[in-house]
């Protein structure tokens, strides 16, 4: 594995469309549940340990070579919100385009033709990591970090939050990120023996409810 390759994949400027999504932060801000840096920290912590962990485990499993279609089905079952499934597939499709251009592989091609409208983003991310020669921990780290960097960046725009404060929130989450990435990779390693049920299914009720509320808005800054 190459640390430089990991930086390319994890770069917020990697052209995979993530900047258009707030990870539920826009709905939480509108509902008054996130009003500043302290709320953002708790929001990110909650998201990291739920949908972040699930995404990291899916990505790690894909990086290990688990059948991506099986993982895509596992992702569907772990994403009860229709709005979030739509967002995950849209993001997966954009990630697929970027990944095929960056690290072309037969496995990416196969998934792209099996899921022309997009597979779940963490599955594509994991397969992209695999194509780039990265390992399951790398994929888990990228997915886990994305689960919090997206909301943090969005809240800077939504609340005019000081970007220094938002970055400090992310920095303080580093121990949690380490733990989530390690747990995710460990779960992914159990998949060959135990099947995809070994992957976590953690959920955050207000993320699921907020996603449906947000999808019904006529005008919004972020796609999800």
């Amino acid at each position: 594995m190459s640390r430089a390759t990991l930086l390319v994949l994890a770069d917020g400027r990697f052209p995979a469309g993530g900047h258009a999504h707030s990870g539920g932060a826009e709905a939480a801000v509108a509902a008054g549940r996130v009003t500043g840096a302290a709320d953002l920290a708790e929001f990110c912590r909650g998201r990291l340990h739920t949908s972040g962990l699930v995404a990291a485990a899916l990505a790690a499993a894909a990086a290990l070579g688990t059948d991506p279609l099986q993982l895509d089905e596992a992702a569907d079952a772990r994403t009860p919100s229709a709005a979030l499934r739509t967002a995950a597939r849209k993001l997966g499709r954009q990630m697929m385009r970027a990944a095929r251009a960056t690290w072309p592989s037969a496995e990416l091609d196969a998934l792209a033709s099996a899921r022309p409208r997009g597979a779940h983003q963490p599955v594509v991310l994991g397969l992209a990591a695999r194509s780039a020669g990265l390992g399951p921990e790398d994929a888990a780290y990228v997915a886990a970090y994305e689960s919090v960097s997206g909301p943090a960046t969005a809240v800077v725009r939504l609340l005019s939050l000081d970007p220094f404060d938002a970055t400090a929130v992310l920095a303080r989450l580093a121990p949690d990120l380490d733990r989530v990435a390690a747990d995710a990779a460990e779960c992914a390693r159990r998949v060959p023996e135990e099947g995809v049920d070994a992957l976590p299914a953690s959920s955050a009720p207000l993320l699921d409810i907020g996603a449906e509320a947000h999808a019904a808005w006529a005008v919004r800054l972020f796609a999800s």
């Binding site: 549940r33 708790e42 990110c44 909650g46 998201r47 993320l207």
Partner: peptide, 14 residues
Amino acid sequence: APGGWDGPAGLAGH
């Protein structure tokens, strides 16, 4: 429980 369960993404006091 993992951190944030009662925060704005989880239950927010409910």
